[in-house]
Amino acid sequence: MTWRSIARQDSALTVSARSVKYLLSLLVLGILLLGYIYPVVGAEPYTTSRFPGFAQGLLTTLVPFVGVLLGYNAVVSDRESGAIRLTLSLPQSRSDVVLGTFVSRTGVLAGTLVAALVVYPFGELELGRFLLFVGLTVAFAAVWSGLGIAVSLAVATKRRALVLGFALLFLFVLVWDTLENALTAGLSAAGLADDGLPAAAEFLFALAPGRVFERATAGFVDPSRSLGEAWYLGEWVALVLLALWIVGPIGLAYARFAGRDLS
């Protein structure tokens, strides 16, 4: 159980860093602001079940950025400086380091999210659905802090980790919708597909973490929204994909990290 001592150490060091405090404050402020303007600009009825639909855009942008920024330097900075040699000289394995760091950083992010979401009740409270929403948001946060840590495991310098992390954010957060629209327009112009994308492409675009999170919250939490008819766009599939996004990237990056020389 030595990953616990690593997690404890890492979380203490993470929250004590000033940059992390700013980053997390930004997240809290964003969510609180959203909570306060929801009853003002949102549509009736104001319930916690419908809040996710309103918060979606902000959460699927802000959480990835904070997650990646929190995770990208996790292992690689210790590796670059040499502090990881002290960690691994002790009876702790590389998997302890990965698990401990993942639990610690995801915990820090999840704790902040939960605190921010719970502080303001966002209209009429429907407890069960609200807790589901909080749970799914935490899972989404785990996806992105996991991606951040995966990036920090996969490369040997902080600079490369940052570049790779931003490449992921750029792809999945900033240009994903544009790519899909462009492909749809292109296929339509070429006369290949008249009504939307072919199923394979539709499924491919539906795989992005933000889309998966959206479908899961829409399906499980928000009664007013409906998902597409295709089975692969259903909420249960989304839930499985969300789980895969949490363990997949970090698992692959760990396999790479475990076989590496550290010098």
Partner: peptide
């Protein structure tokens, strides 16, 4: 007990906390 080559200390820990970390881990 190990004194490796090419290590660096943890940035925001005191000397005492380093020893305590080793104690917890072992």
């Amino acid at each position: 007990g190990v004194l490796p080559e090419g290590y660096s200390v943890f940035d925001r820990l005191t000397g005492r906390q380093h020893i305590e970390y080793a104690m917890r881990s072992k």
